[in-house]
């Protein structure tokens, strides 16, 4: 297939050679770097700077020159609160609801998901038949699009869905899963775990496979029970990987948006509205579009994420050094 492009490369080579001769081999590096760097500057570096401009200006205009300077009002709008634990006492109660929803969501999602991923990785690391197949089974939801995940589960959880049918056949009352707020939150967390667990399982499995087998054999000779093997060998040796997984899951968890938005739309009420949805809806969803407020919220979110990422780099370095 590459051969087909060869004539094009011949043509490109002519001007390229001229530049190479002029500037020397060292400078050709910039030629290779240029397209990526241009897009990068334009759509990553520049937005980082512009984000601050938006966060300190108000109004609904998109163009920066049409936006009045409001200082830190946007941040004030978000942070003004009598009691942060009680969103209804805040000026922007939706923001604080989203914050607390996200906190609880992340606590449950990450906590349960990491434990489940660990269990799955341990099971997959045993001598089992058809390991590749099973690994695939646990992994494949990672590749499904968030909308597809949401629809798969909506279909099961709908009023006349499979789950309610199961409940009824067992003699229970049927439940309106996505209309009752606590259940909606539960299932939001659940589908998010369902969709992402495979990824962390994979990382943990790699970590487990890096533990030398002879350590276990030695423990077996010492008549260690499986539970003690797990506590005294697996967990300590896996703990660096586990930490990485934890932080990675936190970083991703805080940014969750797609599947929940497609699943519940943030409802009922604001029961499953997470922080990313708040940013999206404030800036782009309903009128008026409060771009400044959205940018301010994004900056605060970014600070949390940068903290978490720095933590991850630090752990990674320790893992390498250790």
């Amino acid at each position: 297939m590459l051969k087909l492009l060869n004539p094009i490369m011949r043509l490109v080579e002519i001007p390229f050679l001229l530049v190479q001769k002029r500037l020397g081999i060292g400078m050709t590096a910039w030629l290779f770097l240029a397209p990526n760097l241009a897009l990068f500057s334009l759509f990553t570096f520049l937005p980082i700077i512009l984000n601050f401009s938006y966060a300190t200006t108000g109004g609904e205009a998109i163009l920066l020159r049409d936006r009045p300077d409001v200082g830190f009002q946007n941040f004030g709008n978000l942070l003004e609160c009598e009691n942060v634990l009680d969103p209804s006492s805040c000026r922007n109660d939706l923001f604080w609801r989203a914050v607390w929803n996200t906190v609880w969501f992340v606590v449950f999602q990450v906590g349960i998901m990491v434990i489940a991923a660990l269990a799955t990785a341990i099971v997959l690391n045993r001598k089992i038949r058809a390991r590749g197949l099973f690994r695939g089974v646990f992994f494949f939801p990672v590749l499904l699009s968030p909308v597809v995940v949401a629809l798969i589960w909506k279909w099961i959880l709908q009023r006349n869905g499979l789950l309610n049918a199961g409940l009824e056949s067992l003699g229970f009352e049927t439940i309106n899963w996505l209309i009752e707020r606590h259940w909606a939150f539960f299932w939001s967390t659940f589908i998010s775990i369902w969709a992402h667990m495979g990824f962390y399982t994979l990382i943990l499995l790699a970590g487990l496979q890096a533990i030398p087998q002879d350590v276990y054999e030695a423990a077996l000779m010492d008549r260690a029970s499986p539970w003690r093997c797990f506590r005294k060998i697996t967990l300590p040796l896996l703990s660096p990987t586990l930490l990485v997984v934890l932080v990675l899951a936190l970083i991703k968890g805080v940014q969750t948006f797609d599947e929940i938005y497609a699943f519940t739309g943030g409802g009922p009420g604001s029961a499953t509205t997470l922080i990313m949805q708040f940013i999206y809806e404030t800036g782009f969803g309903v009128q008026p579009r409060l771009l400044g407020v959205a940018a301010a919220a994004a900056i605060m979110l970014a600070m949390v994420l940068i903290f978490l990422t720095a933590l991850q780099f630090w752990i990674n370095r320790k893992k390498v050094d250790g």
């Binding site: 980082i48 700077i49 984000n51 401009s53 994004a298 994420l305 990422t309």
Partner: peptide
């Protein structure tokens, strides 16, 4: 710079990217 931007996920740059 490239490593630095690994730390800032695109999701928090929605507003200014939309402007561009």
């Amino acid at each position: 710079l490239v490593i630095g931007t690994l730390m800032v996920p695109g999701t928090v740059l929605l507003v200014p990217t939309f402007l561009l």
